[in-house]
Amino acid sequence: MNKKDIIICRCEDINLEQIHDLLDQGYTTIEDIKRLLRIGMGPCQGKTCGLLLQQEIARYLKCKTEEVALPKIRPLVTGVKLKAIVEGTKDER
């Protein structure tokens, strides 16, 4: 199958070829690849692509999957409307 047709990150529409391009250029951490491709920065926050990318890097570096560091986990767990946060704090303080 053509690497261009293998979608790794659905939120940001990133395919396997783009990832291999960066790996070939020497960007071999999830943090690097995330910032240059926006992989894992969409609404699902890497819940789908994170492990796929980790496996792909491990395969490329010929190491164990768990040796590839996962990116920093950032809040929020799920998307929340700004308006809902304002309303939720109205009666406080």
Partner: peptide, 25 residues
């Protein structure tokens, strides 16, 4: 930060209140 940011931005740009926050750092 999330609380104060939400209050400030919604006061200035009310329509932005409809958007979901997906990440903070």
């Amino acid at each position: 930060f999330l609380d104060e940011m939400a209050k400030t931005v919604v006061a200035f740009l009310p329509v932005v209140g409809e958007l979901r926050v997906i990440r903070q750092w």
